[in-house]
Design a protein around this nucleic acid. Structure first.
Lengths: 398, 398
DNA sequence: TATATTTATTTCAATTTGGAATTAAGATCA
DNA sequence: TGATCTTAATTCCAAATTGAAATAAATATA
């Protein structure tokens, strides 16, 4: 088990590898112009990387007369990356090649059974199965974990994952346990940071200032500035949800939370509460017939909205509006070039994204030079797991 | 006019210079442990820096038996830095030594007279005066500008400084103009970024995750993550003020602004409006007697609050509460280790800081490992100008 | 086909580097 | 006060790295 940061030897090869990675496909000229290396040093470095199997020549570029430049890209099978997503709804393990294309996926629901010990066991079994099937053991570079917070990411400890059904999830040094069992390097970060990092690395267009928001039961967000994930002193992706958008507004989900928090207005939790209230108030809606003990699940609400139930649609619209307001706040603070939205709430109904981004655009302070672009997470369900795998790359070239 | 980044030759000396700068005073051992340089290379680099006059030996450190290590620090007069703060209320020019201690200051009110051309003239005259008095021309390394946004900082252009009384301030390439006139390198950033950078560099304790909020007529903020100022795609320090803390709440200051924005609840502007409303409503307060055409100025409100006028105090308290709410939102998003508050609103009345931080603490999602520290800007009025001067350092060692 | 242009590779002297050995300067203890 | 020990700074040299120039290769153009 060689430490990741020693897999590629020397700072120059690492830098060049990163450059090639971020470009996708590059000529020597481009590398020369951007980086500090001279032509001869670059040749030596590229040779070294090619010899180590990290990169490959992939054809020739265009040239305005004269010899055509050789193009380089990362060798997709120079290593394999494992990514594990531990969320409130389930766990997901992904095996990716070096270009972050998923080769295999497996998911487990987060139920009463899934203790940390059992999850580790299943991950191990799954990895061993894949080793037999598609790859050898020493191709695996390591495992990245994207977990729900609060965490101590650097130490690989999940501090207190609220609302996990199985016991034993408090203060688990999950990274160390996985490291020991799998005998592979393990890195950890929160899910939102992992997702945004994966999103950044896999996007064609590299927007250096990104904002990612995942809306599900709660709200999670992360951001990138100048191509680097922004870290605070604490690792709590979920605390954006505590942002107040209505001073002394609706009550919080958890006792310690804020009245009028974003989460209490724009999340699956908020929607379900509003739906239950609508049923309780006796509003004329098909939701009433489908409620169980006065509760309406998110799934049913989506179905009824798709069937054009006016109350369901109104609730979704209201939720999207509030979501847009919180989004505008984030944009006004962070000024991203691009905003990536993900999570079941955003993808559940086609109009949600449109309404939310319209509201956000209207409430954002903008002038001609600055207009943020909105988009949805491409990989959606796999975003966190793939991003977690991508954490390893950062270490590889650090 | 040598480019700043070429003043110190070579990446190693630059790195070491930065390290010494950030430490204040260091031994060779510490530099050795942190940086990648070996003992012999470090000796060579330190010699080079000492020869160039950038650093000096300053005494000996402690040792547990044996020879005591030599301590190094930056030579305060290895250069002089100019900082210019262009704000809505006035302009301020500061001359600092390399340890960012101000040697001279001059201020000009932002009135009808202060066109860009005239400001440049005054700055030039002032610099020439200082050159005669305390320093030689070639000691000056350059001029840093901290201006109100929106800007194009990299290009040194002030796009559209709202509410400047003098004409001619739209789309001014102020950095280029100053560069031509002074024949010195000029760098520019927004005032909040400048202030937080200065605050970071001059603080004893280097908190790597900082948040700075300046509350005056409007609200300006900036933040540092991992020792680096966070930049977005746009340069608009003032747009935090557009953060919504009360959906469809009080009306905005400017037509394009948001209803219920932080700025419309927690700024001098908001306070004055509330005070005027209180007088209009005929509340029993000494503010009524001191109002002019129904308007109450911030200064008078502070005076009456100091005299224990209940309405004035209530208004301040209300304002501080809302300020604390917005602050909590920022903290929940950015998780700073330390929060630095500045501006006339914060320093105007002793209770404002206390109330605001209490509210912010209560509304912040925290767990035992994370409790942000609050403090006020040390240099207060000079913070932006000194920070602007400090921008030059970043270039010097880049 | 010759020439110009652009890119890739090789070569070699000059510089830079890392480590070991040496020197220097306290601190401790008898 | 002097011997011994500990740690820091300096010096020196072989080995590695580097940058620039020269050469080679491939393509477009006349």
């Amino acid at each position: 088990m060689k430490p990741l940061e020693q897999r590629i030897a020397g700072t120059k090869p690492k830098d060049v590898f990163r450059q090639i990675y971020l470009h996708g496909t590059v000529s020597r000229q481009q590398l020369n112009e951007e980086g500090p290396l001279t032509a001869s040093t670059l040749t030596r470095t590229l040779d070294e990387l090619a010899e180590g199997g990290w990169i490959r020549e992939v054809g020739f570029g265009e040239s305005s007369g004269g010899r055509r430049p050789i193009l380089y890209e990362v060798q997709p099978r120079s290593g394999l990356l494992l990514g594990l997503d531990i969320s409130r709804t389930g766990a997901r393990l992904v095996l990716c090649d070096m270009q972050l294309r998923p080769l295999h996926t497996r998911t487990w629901p987060m139920d009463r059974e899934l203790t940390p010990e059992r999850l580790i066991g299943r991950v191990e079994a799954c990895v061993n199965e894949w080793i037999g099937k598609t790859c050898s053991r020493d191709e695996l570079l390591g495992l990245g974990v994207g977990a729900v917070g609060p965490l101590q990411a650097a130490e690989g400890i999940i501090l207190d994952p609220l609302h996990f059904p199985a016991p034993g999830w408090g203060n688990v040094p999950i990274a160390r346990l996985l490291e020991e069992r799998l005998e592979l390097p393990v890195l950890m970060d929160n899910g939102a940071n992992a997702a945004i990092w994966g999103e950044y690395l896999t996007s064609e267009q590299k927007y250096a200032h990104l904002l990612y928001v995942n809306a599900g039961i709660g709200l999670r967000s992360a951001s990138i500035s100048n191509g680097q994930v922004i870290y605070g002193a604490a690792d709590m992706e979920g605390s954006v949800g505590q942002m107040i958008i209505q001073t002394d507004g609706w009550p919080p989900r958890d006792p310690g939370g804020n009245y009028g928090s974003w989460e209490s207005y724009a999340s699956i939790y908020a929607l379900e509460r509003r739906a239950a209230a609508a049923v309780r108030m006796g509003r004329e809606t098909s939701l009433a017939g489908r409620s169980e003990q006065g509760e309406v699940s998110f799934g049913i609400l989506l179905e009824e909205a798709a069937k054009d139930d006016p109350v369901a649609r109104e609730l979704l619209q209201e939720c999207a509006t509030y979501f847009g307001i919180g989004l505008a706040n984030l944009i006004n603070i962070l000024h991203p070039e691009k905003v990536v939205l993900g999570g079941p709430l955003v993808t559940g109904h086609p109009s949600f994204f449109r309404i939310a981004t319209q509201v956000a655009t209207r409430k954002t302070y903008h002038y001609p030079q600055y207009v943020p672009i909105f988009g949805t997470s491409k990989r959606e369900d796999e975003a966190i797991a793939v991003g977690a795998a991508a954490l390893l790359l950062r270490k590889l070239w650090s």
